[in-house]
């Protein structure tokens, strides 16, 4: 059986007045029904652009220059634009980071949820209302009948994000794309919203693509993780594989640069420098200028994503992925002490 969604070698470029910004440079993903995958990366890594490209929501003047999107085994890339957009929007819905701007401020939230069932799915007014209330109940909004009549500003951030999820569900998609859905929320509310998304995946066999800068958030809910850097996927695998032995120096360092709530270390690892300027990507591996393990070969070729031997579904775009077990000796910046601070 073919996966729900396959993306092959996606490229997105943004023409700027004086340069071309290569925002996404060959990203491939697969999502199965009932599976949630996570895309993690820093700002500018191309993770959000990738997500938007899937739904044809790229901001002008960005455009997909290469790559294919395969939905249920059907390559939609070559289809006429209208038909392609319809197939993509029928299958996928998106949840955004900022729920306040994602909702229409002068329309009752219930009516916003009922809009798609009424206009696109052709339900009667009463049926659409009932459907909206049902959806609100599904995403865990207490007293949905009363809150149906609320305006977005009358709801708290967590409730608003639930409304956004209900709107996404109202189109009866098979795949939910969520772009930093919990970044604007408090940590206690974040836990609730993640639970809602995960519950929907379990109960309705939805596919989920979760984009976040926070690896911990991703690892809570996703079975597979794609780590993006400078517009490319540089490592993919399960959270267990990444944590037990990350095979790309960026992932490896990132895991040690972010403080762990359960394990304060004497000193965090730092990654020197900044991501490259994507208008002028240097030759070779894009992480090489910041990498402590760079060797001359790294600056010549940009290594493709390569499967890690003996580890299914684990791949890394580092030419030294086989030596990862020795990276713990990574000086001179120092691996953090494995001893708790006293």
């Amino acid at each position: 059986m073919s996966p729900l969604l396959e993306v092959h070698d996606l490229h997105v470029e943004i023409p700027l007045p004086h340069a071309h910004l290569y925002a996404v440079r060959g990203v491939s993903l697969t999502v199965d029904a009932g599976e949630s995958i996570g895309v993690v990366g820093e700002s500018g890594s191309g993770k959000s652009i990738t997500l938007r490209a899937l739904l044809g929501l790229l901001p002008r003047p960005a455009q997909v220059t290469k790559g294919s999107i395969i939905l249920d085994g059907v390559d939609v890339t070559g289809l006429p634009e209208r038909r392609r957009t319809k197939m993509l929007t029928d299958a996928m819905s998106m949840v955004f980071q900022d729920s306040l701007t994602a909702l229409n401020p002068v329309m009752r939230v219930g009516d916003q949820i009922a809009e798609v069932p009424r206009r696109r799915l052709g339900m009667s007014k009463r049926a659409a209302h009932a459907r909206a209330v049902e959806l609100m109940d599904q995403v865990g909004i207490p007293e949905p009948e009363r809150r149906f009549r609320a305006y977005p500003h009358q709801l708290s951030g967590g409730m608003r994000q639930r409304v956004c999820i209900a709107i996404a569900l109202s189109a009866e998609p098979r795949l939910i794309l969520a772009d930093e859905p919990t970044t604007a929320l408090d940590v206690t509310i974040q836990a609730q919203v993640l639970e809602v998304i995960d519950g929907l995946r379990r109960d309705h066999q939805l596919g989920v693509v979760l984009v976040s800068h926070d690896l911990a958030v991703i690892s809570q809910t996703c079975s597979r993780i794609y780590v993006m850097y400078a517009g490319r996927v540089i490592e993919s695998g399960s959270i267990r594989q990444l944590l037990s032995l990350a095979r790309h120096p960026y992932t490896f360092a990132l895991l040690r640069a972010v403080p762990d709530p359960d394990l304060p270390v004497h000193r965090l690892l730092t990654i020197p420098g900044q991501p490259p300027d994507l208008t002028a990507v240097p030759a070779g591996c894009s992480f090489a200028p910041r990498c402590a393990l760079t060797e001359p070969a790294c600056r010549e070729v940009d290594p493709p994503l390569t499967a890690v031997p003996k580890e299914p579904d684990h791949a890394s775009a580092c030419i030294r992925l086989e030596t990862a077990s020795q990276w713990l000796d990574w000086a001179p910046v120092g691996v953090p002490d494995l001893v708790k601070k006293t």
């Binding site: 836990a191 690892s219 267990r240 944590l243 032995l245 895991l255 040690r256 762990d260 709530p261 394990l263």
Partner: peptide, 16 residues
């Protein structure tokens, strides 16, 4: 309890 955590299982946690 709400803080998202990488993983609970101690067995493969290399950082500690």
């Amino acid at each position: 309890e709400s803080v998202p955590r990488m993983l609970s299982g101690a067995e493969t946690h290399p950082i500690g």
